[in-house]
Amino acid sequence: MAEEKTIVLPGDKLNGSELEVRGLGRNYATYKLGNEVYAALPGVLEISEEKKVFIPLENIYIPKPGDIVIGIVINVGLSYWTIDIRAPYNAVLTAQEFLNRPFNPANETLSLYLVEGDYVIGKISSFDRFRSPFITLKGSDKFGKIVNGKVIEIKPSRIPRVIGKKRSMINMLIEESGCDITVGVNGLIHIDCENSHLEDVVTLAIKRIEAEAHTSGLTDRVRSFLKEQLSNS
């Protein structure tokens, strides 16, 4: 392999004009001082002949419009729900958005539809760092309240690996297991399978991806792991 990998820590210089920053926290991972670029987060620096790639290893999920997220209802208001999306900012899901019709708080209460502890899949529709992120449920029939299956948590920085290049990893997981898997960019993954044994196997596979995120040939290893586990049952 022509690539050379090193670990960089906050304060390390990443000089080089052809530096590419990848991963979820790319907008937060470096800072400029004078003409130099420095790392602000711990990460891996991959140096190959053509370019330098910096991938942060730790980061905090910051919402951005278009992100598919999974959240938990933490508060039921008069006309909206507050959703914890494991970000520094709580998201808002309005009643109109959820019910897809006008809503009058004088006639109805929201706790009929969603209560604290319910999981919701949705998309961030707007967020500008001055107002809370809003969740929309338009765009996919998967969006809405989660009624079956299970939701697991992993580090948000490992999400790109679970999806893989051109969705290779996630497509392989879905193909091998036959489960319905929805990945939230905020680190929550919804798995919906035929039986709980399958769900457990997929959970183990995803936990393995999280633990070995930066190794190569992972897709094949996870595939053989899944095959082995599923043939045992």
């Binding site: 926290g25 991972a29 420095y38 711990p42 905090i60 920085s157």
Partner: peptide
């Protein structure tokens, strides 16, 4: 702070 993944200029 570095362990938490909070952006820092230096340790």
């Amino acid at each position: 702070l570095a362990d938490a993944g909070i952006a820092m200029r230096d340790l």
